[in-house]
């Protein structure tokens, strides 16, 4: 049963990295819905992560792969029974491959109302080098 779920997750996941290791925490992992847009000087990721506060987010940039993890805290009503459920409680994880354009020093993240905003500044364009051709 869990194998089936896993294969679905892998298919929908965008990264090509294969996760062979298992997670220590026994919680389901969801792929947060994400908007990505690009302006002249930055790339912005907007991710829905309900239940996540600014201290529950883990962002790692390794080589060209940006991995975002969220560990939300759910306060379950004590002594009550779950009568009806449309969403599951679990962690969030998603990875994206970045181009070299991103300046690693200019990455900013903030969380507001359960949404993560990630601003990735673009590296300043290298000026094209002019090569003078001499007649000889």
């Amino acid at each position: 049963m869990s194998d089936e779920m896993k294969s679905i997750e892998v298919k929908t996941d965008q990264n090509e990295m294969e996760e062979k290791t298992e997670r220590i925490r026994d919680r389901r992992v969801y792929m947060p819905r994400t908007d990505i847009y690009e302006s002249a000087d930055e790339l912005v990721l907007v991710m829905d992560m309900p239940g996540v506060s600014e201290s529950d987010v883990d962002i790692v940039l390794e080589k060209n792969v940006l991995t975002i993890k969220g560990f939300p805290v759910f306060d379950r009503p004590e002594k009550l029974n779950l009568a009806y459920a449309e969403y599951g409680e679990g962690d969030y994880q998603r990875s994206f491959a970045l181009s070299d354009e991103v300046d690693r020093g200019k990455i900013e993240a903030r969380v507001k109302n359960g949404v993560l905003y990630l601003h990735l500044g673009k590296a300043e364009q290298k000026k094209p080098q002019k090569i003078a051709v001499k007649a000889g």
């Binding site: 309900p50 009550l80 009806y84 969403y87």
Partner: peptide, 19 residues
Amino acid sequence: ALNAWTDDDVEVITAEMPG
């Protein structure tokens, strides 16, 4: 998306509505 929790005296509804 909604979840509903109940017992005999109270019902708690939680809704995921980020942003």
